[in-house]
Amino acid sequence: MAIQGMRSGLAQFSGRAITFFARAVTAVRPVWQGLDPGQVRQRIYFANHASHGDFILIWAVLPPRQQQATRPVAGADYWQKGRLRSFIGQDVFNALLIQRNNGQTTTGPVDLMAEALDAGASLIVFPEGTRNQTDEALLPLKSGLYHLARQRPQVDLVPVWIENLNRVLPKGALIPVPLMCKVIFGAALHVAPDEAKDDFLNRARAALLSLKPQPEAT
């Protein structure tokens, strides 16, 4: 009991320390484009994925009450390796860990996510499936997002564009470089009753890409 309490106290402290560090490096700032941050609703945040720090930035800018209820969905292969990672993944951020095989998600994960939604959690997902290392802005989205949206059509799907974190911590780099980041939240979408899988995924992808900041033409 005492050990449990200490562990959760340590987890809470670590959560604060990690978000403080993330803010110190990135000066991260939320931009709300068509989403009211004060409104408490169950949501699936789906974001572009370039770095292991992605969900930390989203988590850091969410209002405190929503932080508690929001669980990142992450790859078990990475977040179960070693005691520190599994402490950060499970104790600090309460991540929903998914077994991946070759980056392809099987049908199991969608059921797991639906279960977590039924328990009242909001989720952070990265539907590209893997970290994007290419020059493309966004990889094609995996179908898991569609299946999840079909299973729980009432939950808001919120596109979230994470700007610049790929430059702060590119894949393979150990030291993060301080550059300013933005987390841009778009308007919620839902899957239409008769919408085909590819149509929905294209629509979701376009919604995500539309949030990407373009240099202002002057």
């Binding site: 790929n166 430059r167 590119p170 301080p178 300013m180």
Partner: peptide, 25 residues
């Protein structure tokens, strides 16, 4: 530090400059 972070954010520095940026900061 804060000024350098703002300036570097607006440069064309890419993934290939990661170590250079780390050395600068």
């Amino acid at each position: 530090f804060a000024a350098l972070r703002e300036f570097m954010t607006l440069t064309n520095a890419t993934r290939a400059d990661h170590n250079t940026l780390a050395a600068a900061f």
